[in-house]
Design a protein around this nucleic acid. Sequence first.
RNA 1: GCGCAGGUGGCGAAAUUGGUAGACGCGCUAGCCUUAGGAGCUAGAGCUCGCAAGAGUGUGGAGGUUCGAGUCCUCUCCUGCGCACCA
Length: 975
Amino acid sequence: MKSKTKIYDPDKIEGKWQKIWERSGIYKTKDGGNKPKCYILDMFPYPSGIGLHMGHPKGYVPTDTYSRYKKMNGYNVLHPMGWDAFGLPAENYAIKNKIHPAVSVKKNIKKFKEQLGRIGFDYDWSREIDTTDPKYYKWTQWIFLKLLEKGLAYESYEPINWCPSCQTGLANEDLDNGVCERCGSEVEKKPMRQWVLRITDYAERLLKDLDILKWPESVKESQRNWIGKSEGAEIDFKITNDELRIKVFTTHPETIFGATYLVLSPEHPLVAQLKDKIKNWKEVEKYILEARQKTEILRTAEGKEKTGVELRGITAINPANQKEIPVWMADYVLAHHETGSIMAVPAHDERDRSFAEKFKLPIVTVLQPLVTRISGIDAFKHREGVSERKAVVAVIKHWSEDKYLGVRWGNTGWQGFVIGGIENGENSETAGMREIVEETGYLHPKLVGKLGETVHARFWQNIKRQNRLAHFEPVLYELVDGERNEPTEEEKTLHKLSWLTPEEMCAFITHDDMAIIWNRVHDGHCKFISGCEVSSILVNSGRFDGLTVSEAVEEFEKLSLITRTTTYKLKDWVFSRQRYWGEPIPVIHCEKCALDNPVGRGVVPVSEKDLPVTLPKVKSYAPTGTGESPLADIKSWVNTKCPRCKGPGKRETNTMPQWAGSSWYYLRYMDPKNNKSLVDKKREKYWSPIDMYVGGTEHATRHLIYARFWHKFLFDIEIVNFEEPFTQLKNQGLVLAEDGRKMSKRWGNVIDPDGIVKRFGADALRVYIMFMGPFENAVAWQTNGVVGTRRFIERVWGLQNKLADRKSKVEESDDFISLLNRTIKKVGDDISSFSFNTAISAMMILINASDNLPRLSRNSFEKILKILAPFAPHIVEELWSNIGGSPLTGKRTRKSIHLERWPKYDESWLKDKTIKIAVQINGKVRDEFSAPADSDENILKTEATSRRNVKKWIDGKEIKKTIYVKGKLINIVVN
RNA sequence: GCGCAGGUGGCGAAAUUGGUAGACGCGCUAGCCUUAGGAGCUAGAGCUCGCAAGAGUGUGGAGGUUCGAGUCCUCUCCUGCGCACCA
């Protein structure tokens, strides 16, 4: 009999094992072998001076558990960690405190590593990387050289986003509603030289390959939005009496005949060229200046009220109908979007309509709905001829109630409104009057008005055995009174009439053409009905009238009226920053080479053997504000030899953005020490792609799109063997403060992981983080919750006192053994599906049950420790080692529990021996009883009906049927 | 406005995918015990009525399908996230 074990002291045992693990190297990963590989990656942290925050373990602890589980299941797991250490905070800290960023970064990394170490992760630290290490950024620069070589990096002089506070240019991705996402300053447009990466060349692939990724739908959707593909056409509008043309982009080229005016954005370059011709230049100039002063936010925040000014003296020719149309300027047209100019089709575009209405511009309808019956007896037969007919559709309102007349055509089952042909000499209104009297017998219809555009319908007329194309003119009438001629018997069988409320009418209508008309009367709630196909055909479009949208677009294209194009919202990646703390862009500017080759502007790449171009020491890290980085001041560094002509050259002084190093870091972990290549081909082939990538949602459109872009490029130049870097992605939820707000210094509600580890131990913290809610959920921190998981951990600790002696046999109940087996299965399944919270809940149930046993067998205890090992690695290692000693020698005879195999469960124990059957009467639970698992259905039913609690519900009633759900319940249906 | 997630006790949440709603944990209540602690043990608890047995009711709301609905269908309301005068 063992003596009582000492008190659980996480402080002691956790530190002890962390040291032993590190010394023994049990977490070192081999590159290769017979085991299947599994690459599990956490998004690496930016090592800020504040140290670890709760968000880090929220993501890192679950992947660590997942990693340990995979290892125990025979996988060769790569689970590395490193530092994304370039970036503004370190630089700003340097400016303020005059400490070189490299120094503070080193200090921060040390702190981060210690803090991570205290939580007990299984990282292979021999593969640690740091993006600011020249040995690392040599390869970041190398990738840039390759991009340059392939024409994917270029210098541009277009105006870019400039943050006046951070004193640097920014990419579109770095803006948050027009504001610098880092400091919140209003961003300006500033023309300056910059390096840009041609990410747009990859737009289509970046979009298409999203389909093969196992990523959260929301992240994929964000990326689709960001790429912003739109298919349409470009159309040139010639300016009247001028050689100049206005190019517009539209997603609806079929509406070209409806383009009644053009609109330029205030920034449109053509405006300057047209200045002399514009008669109201003063007014236009004022508008331009006003627009320039408004920020983008202001412009859009003003809502839907549109402003604009006509360019008097300028007109354009609509190439479709040669009509002269006015040209306007308005800020609802955005300069940076597509061509910065539009053809306005007010009849079919909401924005254009409100603009046209405000400024009294013509509105020409060029599309009308076409409904084709595609199923049922009246389905349109595409191969047969068509006879056309004009008809009126009369919607008739009741004289005193809010009801409308529904007509059912007795012989066809068709339900809708009064319909009749329009005869010679009639218009739709008069034809409708006549039809109402003829068809319904009501004598006093009053015309209310037409109901909008013609609705076309194609269907098969079964009685006449022919296709019909009907042009329905909808007209609304109201009856003055109910006076009526009694209809003939024939009429009565032909047309069954009923007065219907608007809701009833929706349900009554059988075809979409009628639904479209009804929606014009009764605003919009009528759903379209299956069996019909709704499309549009052209009208008011000259000889193209009657064509479908796709037919028209095809025709226009043939005539070169339009040029079909696909555009993307994604813009090329502005890649240079006028700051110090980043990778130097490895090129040299040479004036002599510029003369030899004006196209290349004298940009000469640093030769590969001279990489890395290291950051020099500077006196001042502060940005110069001139649009040049602080590097420009270091003459000894800037002035160098041109690698091509050996003449004098100047180094590029811009640096790369923070996203550069993180766009490929996952490859370096595979082969972190390689100084011959970025990554060894064999190793890359072995480890790629990443099987599980975990991080926060804030990287949905930047890091994840940049990294995919670089990866695809590296695939193209055959550095990597697979098109996508991260096959599976998961986002951990936020940790909110106890008050439900974000944790922030400002609110004083920050809980730091270190403090929790000190008070409760790393194992309790780990278990709590995973237990607090589903992995992806944002959940509020509760320190009391950690108390709960600490209690759980201590209960596990206490189990060693129940441990039976090696020699003595222990009888554990069937129930317990069954529970143990089921828990092994459930915990494994749950880890695989990232359902850590339910895995822990299952283990709690098991531990509670173990706690209630008088004695626990060694075998069971070991299994319990093993399934707990991925969650609470320290305590299980301690307990494992406690029971590992031989009672004779006292020597430790076993290796770490983390090198053990995941226990197997026994299928035969997963089934219950006895089952609990619930008895329902009409679906309500009234009783329950236990029975052997193999009980016959009839015996169970007999038992159920004979029970007292059941009898009182069924006595005197007729049992209509009895449903038995195997092993679960019996439902008795009575009336 | 468009798209994507979600709405279940006082709280975090479960629910084998159509079969006993609320497992597990926090908090709470009562009792016990003690080395007075952020401790342990036992019991209780969705809500309403009731001393209780029990009955009614209950997964944002309204309908529907079904012997049976948190789960499926229709409509609707609310919350979070992304995009947004996107041509």
